[in-house]
């Protein structure tokens, strides 16, 4: 089978021993280093099922690396990761992934419908070609993101927002339990952002877990109910009202943040954060 499966042969036992099968995502003692320089240091994370979680942190905090480690795209130096009590390599069909838009070549000779159908490949497995059923799934997903009439467009003709919606449709046809999205709201128009948020919230309301690397501190409280603040280590994690505090943000972002008190007279949990100097 896959090399990843061979390397991860001990993970099952660990996942069971840790007794955290109730968590959608359970990470323990995770360290990832590039050339001896730690990008993530001794991370413990628990995200319960059925929440919409944001991962925030300054540039270089290791947000994307965290997702890549969960998906097996980078190899951790230490630690283990469980998705619903199983190592990720054993739960390929339960995980959907939306990479950053810049991760792919949008001049690739293919159509919108084709890209969305790629989301069904995990269910098809090796050798089987997508057929009518996959096409129907893909069309339904394209309809829900408002892109049905563009299904036969070549992908290079799409705007940034349309590209993001295609990626979202592709994740939806994966029909997973846990969705990982890397900055899905970066550089998209307001309509797309609304569509993305609405669809992600619908997924959450259907009992799925949605985990989003997010860059816009101002919308955290509006969109998400769970929050992980990261800066190489975990600064704070938990429900948004408890974790989204001025103190936590300052600990993560240091001087790179401006806190504007919203004037409720309460403590800094009512603060609106704006990341400065980006």
């Amino acid at each position: 089978m896959s090399i990843r499966k061979l390397l991860g042969k001990n993970d099952t036992a660990q996942c069971h021993r840790l007794h955290e099968p109730d968590q959608a995502l359970h990470i323990e003692d995770l360290t990832v280093a590039y050339e001896g320089k730690p990008v993530l240091w001794d991370i413990d994370i628990n995200i319960p099922p059925g929440v919409m979680a944001a991962i925030i942190g300054p540039n270089g905090a290791g947000k994307s690396t965290l997702i890549k480690a969960v998906l097996g795209l980078v190899r951790p130096t230490a630690g283990h990761i469980c998705i619903h009590g199983h190592p990720p390599a054993e739960s390929l069909r339960r995980i959907a992934y939306v990479p950053q838009r810049s991760a792919v070549d949008w001049d690739f000779p293919t159509t919108v419908l084709d890209v969305v159908m790629m989301g069904r490949y995990a269910h098809l497995g090796w050798f089987r070609w997508p057929g009518r059923r996959e096409r129907r799934h893909a069309m339904e997903a394209l309809e829900s993101v408002g892109m049905a009439e563009l299904s036969h467009r070549q992908i290079s003709q799409l705007s940034g927002g349309q590209q993001q919606r295609v990626f979202l449709a592709r994740a939806m046809v994966q029909d997973a339990d846990v969705y990982f999205l890397d900055e899905p709201m970066a550089g998209v128009d307001a309509t797309t952002e609304k569509t993305v948020v609405r669809l992600l919230q619908e997924l959450r309301d259907a009992g799925k877990t949605v985990i989003v690397v997010h860059h816009d501190l101002q919308t955290v409280r509006d969109y998400f109910d769970w929050l992980v603040i990261l800066n190489v280590r975990v600064v704070a994690q938990g429900r948004v009202p408890e974790v989204y505090t001025g103190e936590n943000l300052r600990r993560a972002y240091g001087g790179r943040i401006a806190l504007i008190d919203s004037g409720t007279g309460e403590d800094s949990s009512g603060a609106v954060a704006r990341e400065a100097s980006r």
């Binding site: 097996g72 991760a103 792919v104 293919t110 790629m118």
Partner: peptide, 26 residues
């Protein structure tokens, strides 16, 4: 012909290919 679907995914989006277990490096 045999690996058309897999090659297409691995070429277009190697990260998703890896995440779905399609061994793009191999």
């Amino acid at each position: 012909l045999m690996f058309y679907k897999e090659l297409k995914l691995a070429t277009f989006d190697p990260q998703l290919a890896a995440a779905l277990g399609f061994a793009p490096t191999a």
